[in-house]
């Protein structure tokens, strides 16, 4: 019972923030935080596919980007954002199924998988930057090459393209969506399929010998993470109002990975907190222009890998547990490090 309450605490805090935020915060902060939570949603997708299923997907941003572009094109063509969000979530699923069936059915190892997925996102990047010619267009929307697509309409009331949502409402929706994604992924993780996925992460061969089709479960998890990432991408584009090929580039891809490592692989709260923290940091750094963002990020990744390979959340949890057992005088046998 206590565990359930503990688990519900984080989404509850998000929901609380979604409703109180508009009354306390400035519009500028609201827009920023909406964008941050859209990014955090995508990071949750990676936290799931990597932390629960053990698939190191370095090209997670490709699904984010596909979702973002799909939203931009659909909403600019038809005007209704609900349909656009739906398409922006579905298209990455389709793409992940195609890509995933190539990857998982050839039984690629984790490293090979990471490299291939990273290559895919880089190919998208170079393709999208080369679409400056007006010949590249989908419907009435030119892809715009390096500049991307601009002046994208934001979210509107479902069915009424003219009734745009206010900054406050968009903020609430983004945070609620983040809480929703968190709850959905937590439920999936504790479901039967989720347990099998965890088993696959722990030992692929053993799970297969027990009769589970690991390729199917990997494909399933991959598609789910793609959907979450694409959804995050649609919200991000809706908030920012533009999308450029930079969603496919290397820094973007590395951000998601950084947040998941920093927050703690295998956890969900950690990556979300880390994504907010790092985005705030990079926002500050970008505003100051004192330090180079890549320099800081690179150094942070190296330090995390060397010093806290398990990430912040497990580290903090372990420290808290240590203190607790110390106080109550219970000496447990030290667990073997993973």
């Amino acid at each position: 019972m206590l565990r359930h309450i503990k688990n519900a605490l984080f989404p509850f805090a998000l929901v609380l923030a979604a409703f109180t935020g508009p009354f306390v915060l400035e519009p500028f902060d609201l827009v920023n935080l909406s964008a941050f939570s859209a990014m955090a949603i995508a990071a949750l997708g990676l936290a799931f596919v990597w932390g629960t299923l053990g698939i190191l997907n370095l090209g997670h941003s490709v699904f984010f980007g596909v979702g973002a572009y799909a939203y931009a094109i659909t909403v600019s063509t038809f005007g209704d954002s609900t349909l656009a969000v739906l398409i922006g979530t579905m298209l990455p699923i389709v793409f992940s199924l195609v890509l995933g069936s190539c990857l998982f059915f050839s039984r690629l190892g984790d490293v090979y998988l990471g490299v291939i997925t990273l290559c895919v996102t880089l190919i998208f990047y170079s393709f999208m930057t080369s679409t400056a010619d007006p010949w590249f267009h989908i419907g009435p929307v030119p892809l715009g090459g390096f500049n991307g697509i601009t002046a994208i309409p934001s979210l509107n009331v479902p069915g009424d393209p003219q009734a745009f949502l206010s900054t406050e409402a968009t903020f609430s929706i983004c945070l609620l969506a983040l809480a929703g994604a968190y709850i959905l992924l937590s439920l999936v993780r504790s479901s039967d399929a989720g347990r099998i996925m965890t088993a696959i992460r722990e030992n692929e061969l053993r799970s297969e010998l027990l009769g589970y089709d690991i390729r199917f479960y990997k494909l399933l998890g991959f598609a789910l993470s793609a959907a979450i990432a694409g959804f995050g991408g649609t919200l991000y584009t809706a908030v920012m109002g533009f999308v450029s090929p930079n969603v496919f580039d290397l820094p973007q891809a590395s951000q998601f990975v950084l947040w998941v490592i920093a927050g703690g692989l295998g956890t969900f709260v950690g990556p979300v907190v880390a994504s907010f923290a790092f985005q705030l940091l990079s926002c500050q750094l970008g505003a100051n222009q004192v330090f180079n963002t890549e320099l800081i990020f690179g150094a942070t990744i190296v330090l995390f890998v060397l010093l806290a390979p398990q990430g912040l959340q497990p580290m903090i949890v372990r420290m808290a547990n240590l203190k607790l057992t110390y106080r109550s005088g219970i000496f447990r046998r030290k667990e073997k490090p993973a």
């Binding site: 490293v111 590395s254 320099l295 990020f297 150094a299 190296v302 995390f304």
Partner: peptide
Amino acid sequence: RLYGHLVTTMLATWGLSLFLIGAVTA
């Protein structure tokens, strides 16, 4: 420090790569 940990090495060298890009840019 990371021999034998394929994925960890990959991430560490990725960090190194970003760091070097940042340093050269700076």
